[in-house]
Amino acid sequence: MSEALNSGSAGKTMTLRIRRGGPGETPRYDTFEVPYQDGTSVLDAVMWIHGHVDPSLAIRYSCVNANACKECMLLVDGKVEYACTARLKAGTMTLDPLDNKELIRDLVTDIVPPKERLRNILAERG
């Protein structure tokens, strides 16, 4: 995670609106005030919320810095982006799960290839 967020030395704050809940639930947006610096990523902010404010917030990611795992895709202000390469900016930004994938919960969608999805494997041979 960004050292600035970790050490609390970030100077500015901005607002993140994040879509919450699972399939079939009425969509709701929670609003979080987030500290940031130039360059802080959307993923840094979501990790910060999960680790400091609301541990019930769900997102999928692994590599944090490398932009290698490609697990963190979501919608930033309606546009498809990697959470780890999208940068925070002043004002308010809105995060939604990908809208072309099955929603699991919060920002997590089903992007796992069907052949490696546990549910399918249990159904086949469990």
Binding site: S62, A66, A68
Partner: peptide, 14 residues
């Protein structure tokens, strides 16, 4: 625990 081939150091090494 993550997706196959994506979760650890291997994919991050450059």
């Amino acid at each position: 625990k993550s997706m196959i081939s994506r979760g650890g150091a291997t994919i991050m090494a450059q």
